[in-house]
Every structure is written in structure tokens, then in C-alpha cells.
Design a protein around this nucleic acid. Structure first.
Lengths: 262, 262
DNA sequence: TAGTGGTCTAGACCACATA
DNA sequence: ATGTGGTCTAGACCACTAC
């Protein structure tokens, strides 16, 4: 079925190759592939055309194609294996490996993340601006706010407030609240961006916990609660959501991941 | 002075090129350059040999040299400018741009980091193992512990406990406590690894603040304090230090940086 | 055995910085 | 004007996978 794969490569070029661009070719190819993956032209796990097919369908030579694909590998967007080919990395395994709320348990070596369970408490549409606006609604678009409780290993209850652009994720607005389970949540994000969270910006502040937080989590009234704020970004650097976690005091260690410079 | 630069390149190869290696050449060159920078063979800001000089002094062709140098750029280890040349990135600007304790102030757009001031309270040698052992003293080496107070914008006092391998940083052990100011601190780390912190692993936990923390910071007794744990790594992925920050409640936002997957 | 990606080369042209 | 890095090419050889 070599013809089909080459046809697919040509279709990719027709759709995503920029008519004219000041970027170098390896950069054009890298961006085109990223965009096509984000838009779902290639599904996660799908096999990409071979290097030779890219050489035939783009105005790039082998070295240039390789450079673009190598860059995508280093970004974790695709995977390549000698003899097999190139496939879109399966970034939709975030249910097993999320980027936040990774508690470590008391004493494990090597560290192991505790299981998490979620339940949805409330959902509302917010039209007023807030601290989330500059990330997910720069033009004051309506925002869907979803309040949830994360149960960590059935031992710790963490209250979470989630904000996302209402128009971008219609399922989050339209589906019945009962249907907004943990699994489905990620699926909706993926359906819009076709990939999971790529990186997260994190910040910490302290705040008197609102009533609903005190009622539904292990946070106590009157004591300022530590609030972890997370902004999730997609592959194309678009902000996907804005989320606050009200962290109750506990003996468990919360893994915040590895931060790189600037 | 072209001869001198070429001589320097040859000296680099003599010292750092592996006698035999199963790694590809671009990887050998990348590792050799990283190692030589960590060991101080090239000082921060120093000008590296040109591509042509590397071609002449190593068994690599131009493309291979470029690939190695490009990799180092993407890691932030060197900087290159067309027409000028390649220089070792000045990673010793961490006093201005540290990787932790970056508070954001109340409402700034774009966000600006608040100034920090430090004073040293105590220093002692620790021989017993602790949570830091697996990172900086896997064989139970003596560890130097330094207690400090960070003053954020003269408004917030954060207590910090710092651990490092005593043998690796003799200045931290031998110098009088009064001489351990903020500036000097980074210098000692740099003198050992010749570069500043490359990336940090972060975690959060809660803990009843010890007496000295309550006495010397804005943390209150009886209330569990949020403790941010940071492990700093050098360019060659060696752990440099293990540090705890006792974060008092405040209206200021603590920037935790950007975390990438896994 | 045929096809895949991984490495490496030699050479070309260009944009930019410095003197 | 010279030298620098940035891009791109065409082609070679190899290691590995799949058939």
C-alpha cells in the first residue's frame, strides 16, 4: 500500500504546506506536522509517511526532512524506530500519567504516584473576567467553570476549580454534570486539540478557602489554604485551561515535576 | 590570533575526546563539550572555536559539528550568533534570574519578580542520613546544612534549609558564617560545577514548623506550614543541593516555573 | 530481501557581524 | 572584505525491522 501512504503525504502537503513563508524549510515542515497533528489529520499512533515520501512530496531534501522529524522527536510529538517508521506519539495516556496532582505517598523508593479519583460538584458559565482571562479568554469570552473534588488514594480530598473557554469545549458545557467523570474530561480536551497537555505553568498562593471548599475537602475554615494554580498548554502553545487546587495540609508529598530555566 | 584558537581546539580534543566510544560522533562532541564546560575548560562567556576549527581538530565533518553545537544551543548551554561565533552561555546570572523563590507581587502585568535578600542564621555539619541523602549523599557522606532567611521585597520572611555535600563545597564549610552572603553562595556552587543550576525538581508537603522557623520567619506555630522542596541539578545531571523553603501564608504569588512531561 | 530510520560527508549558497 | 554561523543538498553507508 505504498501508493496510499504517498497520497496521504501529498494530501498533507496540499493542506498544511504554507504558500509562502520566511521560515526555513525544516521549520516549515516541523510546524506543518505539529499543526496537522493538533488538528487530527494524523491520529495518535498513526504511521507517518517515510522520509523518502516526504522528500518526494515536499520541496525538502532528505537531510532537511530528517532534521524536522528529529526536532519533533525531541519535543515528544512523534516517535521513530529504525526499520519500522515514524508514528505520532500517543499523548493520550495522561490518565495514567497526568501532569498534576501527583502525590507520592509517604515513603516509597522509587517514588510511586498515588491513585486519584474525581467527582464533579458543580458547573457554571462565567462571563465576568478573572485571573484566568489573560490565559484562556483574552477577549472576555464566556468561560465554563467546573468545581471538582480529587480524592487522593481515598485519603485526601482536594478541591479543584477548573476554567476553560466555553466555546472551545462545548461538551463541557452541554453534557449533564453526572457525565463529566475523570476519564471523559481528558477526552474532551483531546477532541479539541487532539493531544493532551504538553506543559504546565505552575504558581502557588495562599487564600482563605471559600465555603464550598471547606465543606467539600480537607481544608479548614479560618486557616489560609495553599492554592496551586496550573495553566495547561497544548502542543501549539495555546492555553487549554486554568485550574486552582486547594491543597489541604497532609503528610503526603505532592510532586511538582521538573522545572527548566525561564 | 587564529592560531591560538585552533591550538585551544586541539587541546580540547586531546583532553576530552574519548579514545574509543560507541556513541555517534555528534553525541561524542556534545558530551565532550558539556564536560569541558562543567570542568571549566571554557569559562562562561568564553568564545568557542569556530565550526571550521572543530572540523579541523575533530574527526567530524561540518554537518556533524553543527549538529552537536545545535544540540547544545537547544539545551541552553551555549549561544551562537551568525557573524560573531559561539560562546558559552553565561549561566552565572542566577542572582538576577534564580530558579526558585520567584514571587510575583500582587498584580503586575506582565509579571515581575520581586527582589530577594538573604541572611544566614546557622551552619552545621550533618552526618546522619536524611531525605536529602538519596540525592546529594548516596553513600552517607557528611553534609553541610545552612539555615537562611529569605526576605522577599522586605515584606515576607521565608525560612530556608539548604543541604549540600560538604566535601564538594569546602568553602561552604570553612568560610565564616558572616561571609556566606547571597552572592557568594552561588559563586561557590559555580566554582565546583562551573555553571549554575540547570533544572530543579520540585515537591510540596506540609509540616509543623520547627521552633527556629517560627522564630525567624512569618510562619506561625501550631499551623502546618507549606514546605517547598527543591533539588537543584547541574548541567551533567548531578544533584547539587537539596533545599526546603517554609512558605508563610501571604497574598503574593510564588512562581513555580514551567514543568514539562515526565 | 526490501525498506526503514540513523549517521556522516563534502560542498554549496546565503545572511549577518566585524573590522 | 573576510569570516562567522544557518540552511540545504545529494549521496553514501550502516543497523535494524518486517516480510
Amino acid at each position: 500500500m505504498k501508493t496510499f501512504s504517498l497520497d496521504r503525504a501529498n494530501e498533507f502537503v496540499r493542506r498544511y504546506w504554507p504558500p509562502e513563508s520566511s521560515y526555513p524549510k525544516h521549520e516549515q515542515l516541523r510546524r506543518a506536522l505539529t499543526e496537522s497533528i493538533v488538528e487530527g489529520f494524523w491520529a495518535p499512533g498513526a504511521r507517518l509517511p517515510t522520509e523518502s515520501e516526504f522528500v518526494a512530496s515536499t520541496p525538502c531534501s532528505l537531510g532537511t526532512v530528517q532534521r524536522a522529524l528529529r526536532e519533533l522527536v525531541s519535543q515528544g510529538i512523534i516517535e521513530r524506530r529504525r526499520g519500522s517508521g515514524s508514528v505520532v506519539a500517543d499523548l493520550n495516556a495522561p490518565t495514567e500519567m497526568p501532569l498534576h496532582m501527583r502525590y507520592l505517598g509517604d515513603d516509597a523508593d522509587p517514588p510511586a504516584h498515588l491513585p486519584r479519583y474525581t467527582r464533579v460538584l458543580a458547573r457554571r458559565i462565567v462571563n465576568e473576567p478573572g485571573p484566568w482571562s489573560r490565559y484562556i479568554a483574552p477577549d472576555n469570552q464566556p468561560v465554563v467553570r467546573i468545581d471538582r473534588v480529587f480524592s487522593i488514594d481515598r485519603r485526601l480530598e482536594v478541591y479543584s476549580v477548573f476554567y476553560a473557554d466555553a466555546a472551545q469545549f462545548p461538551e463541557l458545557v452541554e453534557l449533564p454534570v453526572e457525565a463529566l467523570g475523570n476519564r471523559n474530561f481528558k477526552v474532551f480536551m483531546a477532541r479539541r486539540y487532539h493531544t493532551a497537555v504538553h506543559r504546565v505553568k505552575q504558581a502557588l498562593r495562599f487564600e482563605q478557602p471559600p465555603d464550598e471548599v471547606v465543606r467539600n475537602s480537607d481544608c479548614e475554615a479560618g486557616i489560609p489554604a495553599a492554592v496551586l494554580n496550573v495553566v495547561g498548554y497544548a502542543l501549539n502553545e495555546a492555553a487549554m485551561y486554568y485550574q486552582d487546587f486547594y491543597l489541604p495540609p497532609s503528610s503526603m508529598v505532592l510532586d511538582l515535576g521538573v522545572a527548566v530555566r525561564s
